[in-house]
């Protein structure tokens, strides 16, 4: 299926460790109710385990979605703009010109720090610009931020 391919810069895919980070977050969110259901099933009737089973299936499915999502998440630095693609079910490609970036934000939570990855978020004057690159290796994120900032300054145009 045809989809956007930048012609002058290669896609740079995000770090695979993002998969583990997201899986752990997901497991924490769903795992506690799962354990709760299993305990409840052991105390009352085994029928409750059916619910636990359904939950488990949902977890496996979302794990699969996470893997697919992360492997589809990439960015490309072109001459005038940054291209971010993401998503498998709802695919999006966002093109953000360097001259339009108001500021670049790098953030990483405790889990992301443990895995050595960070999220790079681009801000333009539009609230609609949804351009963030999750799961960039920390060193690369700092380099990316500096590169984006310097390019933004070079090409900055007024609103």
């Amino acid at each position: 299926m045809t989809w956007f391919e930048p012609d002058d810069a290669p896609w740079q895919y995000v770090s695979r460790t993002l998969i583990y980070a997201r899986l752990i977050t997901m497991a924490l969110w769903w795992g506690i109710p799962l354990i709760g259901l299993i305990v409840l099933g052991a105390l009352t009737s085994p029928w409750v385990w059916a619910g636990a089973g359904a939950l488990l299936i949902a977890m496996i499915w979302s794990a699969w979605v996470i893997v697919r999502q992360v492997t589809a998440h990439a960015w490309a630095e072109r001459e005038d703009d940054l291209v971010v693609k993401r998503g498998r079910i709802l695919r999006t490609v966002t093109v953000v010109p360097y001259g339009r970036m108001q500021y670049v934000e790098v953030e990483s939570g405790p889990l992301a720090r443990a895995f050595g990855i960070a999220r790079v978020q681009l801000h333009t004057a539009s609230p609609g610009t949804d351009a963030n690159i999750a799961g960039v290796p920390e060193a690369e994120a700092a380099r990316l931020r500096d590169r984006l900032t310097s390019r933004g300054e070079a090409q900055l145009a007024g609103l």
Binding site: W3, L90, R91, T92, T94, V95, V96, P97, A125, S126
Partner: peptide, 16 residues
């Protein structure tokens, strides 16, 4: 053109 902040392409499953 000079007022474009950013551009986006979206495609859902049915659209694909």
């Amino acid at each position: 053109h000079e007022r474009t902040q950013s551009l986006q392409l979206q495609q859902g499953v049915l659209q694909r």
